[in-house]
Design a protein around this nucleic acid. Structure first.
Length: 713
DNA sequence: CATACATGAATTTTT
DNA sequence: TTCATGTATG
């Protein structure tokens, strides 16, 4: 949906693709170069497995994002038909984890109705654990804890491995944090991988059940897996101990596109695969169906500087195409202006763009992407694009589910699903305000904490009267009754019409619309928020009607569900389909967010030393690992382009508040463009600018003369 | 408690 | 330059 276009490939598979599809019996690693048709291999392999007698529900295809998962299901549906596609287990690592925990988590002491904390909830819990309100510190803890969890370390191991005092403190906070989570019956996103793994390791029955579940497991973007995900994969397919019935699997990935090392992904998982699975079949897909030769040569030249795990070199039959263009700019504004000019030239057909068959294709806005290293770089481009009246979208803005109003409602839903979810309780009880303030909640907390009960449970304790005044208690009791009543109705309401009525009634009861208009200073903003809320209601209602098949959160069938059932899946659910927005728009995106996408025309901007490869303000050194990951990021950027690629850099750029001289990124030299193209010489440029200026002056003089002439006549 | 001003720091992101 | 957090004041 986001990919503006899809490279076309001949209907038949090429030999390497065929080999990957046909290798069904054992472990298989497919090294899929950029644009080499990896999704096609996965979907065809699914079809092949079905042909060989596996039931759809025995085939698991695991991805990283819900978006990738949805796309995979669509592509599979197109190939094997809706009936079979419906029962395929196409899901993210996280939703598979949820499914496992909801089914069997009780075996490791997790109630089936556990809550899933999102990043903000976690931050709140951490601030609480640390007895510290410093947001920045809590965020550092959050980051550290997540990384540790991704590496498979628990709090004890983390403390042992801590390199300095800060890390030791973080590890101790982690210990308290974990205690808090189990008290809340809550898990964080990382636990959705770690706990299922622990379950398979500890519980023989669960292991037997889940290892027998799948006849083949396919993993997409394998190079992005972290240590725990790899262990989970191994646990699912039956580990190395050579059980004869070990489940065959297919890992599809590209070591050259591993760009998430900073959040725990590790190429070790690729290195270890052949060692731990000696019968591993390794197949490289090297034919590229996306880009022209000029673009591929540049990409190959850059990535050749990195040490190779597996040798592979992309080639294509799409012809030479246009030369890669290097654009020198005076500064950020100038860069944005030149990019705008390029977009206009592409659109107007003023740039020589040879299509494959020689015909001139009209260039749509959606054929064009501007890619940069860091989000803040988007700003200037937005300004200039707006000024030029070019429609655009910025990928990866605040997601729908990050909006405050949606989080408010989600807190309520979480609370009815799991009464012990204290963060949800705290948000719901104060939203909208209902005369229960800090003081009351603090007393309630002091009452609950030594008794080891949740806040909600404490509400109804007969002895609560000793701790709180009558008025506060009345308010709390009323809230508690309301929640219980709402929960009861949510459990017994199915079907979209009834669900909608229930939810709207609930919003009315809590006065949410009024709350929005009271708290938002502009009426326009409040209206927008309220309309988000209504969308959200519709969205839940649709799911209750079973009109939407939902693979997230443990429900794989598309049957009628109660509001309560849908609420259970809320935290992890798909970010809403980017609503109908204009589709013909230029894309502005970070390089990271651009992975997996492609456009006919791409501009990489800000290709400067310091930006890419990135160097922070601190004096931390650039390690070779870091540099190599930056290089892979550049490689990802280059290989997004189908037909034309331009790379721009800044002669001067801002650092802090001062301007410093900009140096072109070493990656530009590494593209070895001088062999195939000529970048605009600075002196040439000056000449051109002078000429343009002279032309302008002449034109205005002529216009003046003409005006004078008409005025006189 | 809310607003105003000063000070300081500045990647990449999914679930 | 901008954004966010911290402090001082009404």
């Amino acid at each position: 949906m986001n990919a503006p276009s899809v490279s076309s490939q001949a209907p038949s598979l090429n030999p390497a693709q065929l080999e990957a599809v046909h290798h069904l019996s054992g472990p298989c690693l497919v090294l899929a170069g950029a644009g080499s048709g990896k999704t096609r291999v996965i979907t065809h392999k699914i079809a092949k497995l079905l042909q060989h007698g596996l039931a759809p529900k025995q085939i698991a295809a695991i991805t990283f994002t819900n978006k990738a998962s949805a796309e995979m299901r669509e592509r599979a549906k197109a190939l094997v038909g809706p009936r079979a596609a419906k029962d395929l287990v196409v899901s993210t690592f996280h939703s598979l984890g949820v499914r496992m925990l909801r089914a069997d988590g009780e075996r490791i002491g997790l109630k089936a109705n556990f809550s899933i904390l999102d990043s903000d909830d976690v931050l709140g819990v951490l601030r609480d654990c640390g007895g510290n309100t410093d947001n920045a510190l809590a965020r550092r803890w959050q980051w550290a804890i997540s990384l540790w969890k991704n590496q498979g370390l628990d709090a004890v191991a983390a403390e042992a491995a801590a390199a300095n005092d800060d890390e030791r403190v973080a590890a101790r906070v982690m210990l308290r944090y974990q205690e808090r989570l189990s008290a809340y019956q809550a898990v964080d996103f990382d636990d959705l991988i770690g706990l299922p793994l622990a379950m398979l390791r500890r519980d023989d029955e669960a292991r037997a059940k889940w290892q027998g579940m799948f006849g083949h497991v396919l993993v997409d973007e394998y190079q992005d897996t972290n240590a725990v995900q790899y262990e989970l994969l191994k646990a699912l397919v039956g580990s190395q101990g050579a059980t004869p019935g070990r489940t065959p699997f297919t890992a599809v990935g590209d070591d050259d596109q591993s760009i998430y090392g900073w959040r725990g992904a590790t190429i070790d998982n690729l290195k270890r695969l052949p060692l731990e699975f000696p019968s591993l079949k390794v197949i490289a897909l090297e034919q590229n169906y996306r880009s022209t030769a000029h673009i591929l040569r540049a990409a190959n030249a850059v990535i050749a500087k990195n040490p190779k795990l597996f040798e592979k070199k992309l080639w294509s039959e799409l012809g030479e195409g246009e030369q890669v263009k290097v654009i020198e700019c005076d500064g950020e504004e100038h860069e944005a202006e030149r990019v705008v000019a390029r977009i206009q030239a592409l659109r107007g057909g003023q740039l020589a763009v040879h299509s494959v068959n020689g015909a001139v294709l009209p260039v749509k806005f959606s054929d064009i992407a501007v890619l940069y290293r860091a989000n803040h770089q988007a700003k200037v481009f937005e300004q200039k694009l707006r000024a030029a009246q070019i429609p655009y979208k910025v990928s990866g803005g605040t997601s729908y589910f990050d909006r405050a109003e949606i989080k408010d409602l989600c807190a309520w839903l979480r609370l009815i699903v799991n009464n012990d979810d204290d963060p949800a309780f705290l948000r719901a009880v104060t939203t909208p305000k209902r005369g229960i303030g800090h003081q009351t909640l603090a007393s309630l907390g002091e009452f609950a904490s030594p008794r080891k009960t949740s806040l909600f449970e404490a509400l109804f304790a007969p002895t609560l009267g000793a701790a709180l005044k009558g008025k506060a208690i009345d308010a709390l009791h009323e809230f508690g009754r309301f929640v219980n009543d709402f929960e009861h109705r949510a459990r017994h309401t199915t079907g979209s019409e009834d669900a909608k009525a229930l939810l709207l009634g609930w919003l009315k009861d809590i006065g949410y619309e009024q709350h929005l208009f009271d708290n938002e200073d502009s009426e326009k903003l409040a209206t927008a928020r309220w309309s988000n809320v209504l969308d959200f209601v519709d969205w839940i209602a649709k799911r209750c009607g079973g009109e939407i098949s939902q693979e997230v959160g443990g429900t794989f069938e598309s049957e009628r569900q109660s509001v309560f059932d849908v609420a259970q899946t809320i935290s992890i659910i798909i970010s809403i389909a980017e609503r109908g927005e204009d589709t013909d728009v230029v894309t502005l995106s970070t390089l990271h967010a651009a992975k997996g996408l492609e456009w006919p025309h791409v501009v990489l901007v800000g290709v400067n030393e310091g930006l890419i490869p990135f160097k922070g303000g601190g004096e931390e050194e650039m390690t070779t690992e870091r540099l190599e990951e930056e290089r892979r990021l550049m490689y990802v950027g280059i290989t997004r382009a189908q037909r034309t690629l331009a790379v721009s850099w800044l002669r001067r750029r801002k650092r802090g508040r001062e301007m410093v001289a900009g140096i072109p990124s070493r990656f530009i030299a590494e593209m070895k463009l001088d062999e195939v193209t000529v970048k605009e010489d600075p002196r040439e440029r000056l000449k051109r600018i002078r000429a343009e200026l002279a032309a302008k002056v002449q034109a205005s003089e002529a216009a003046q003369a003409a005006a004078g002439a008409t005025g006189a006549g």
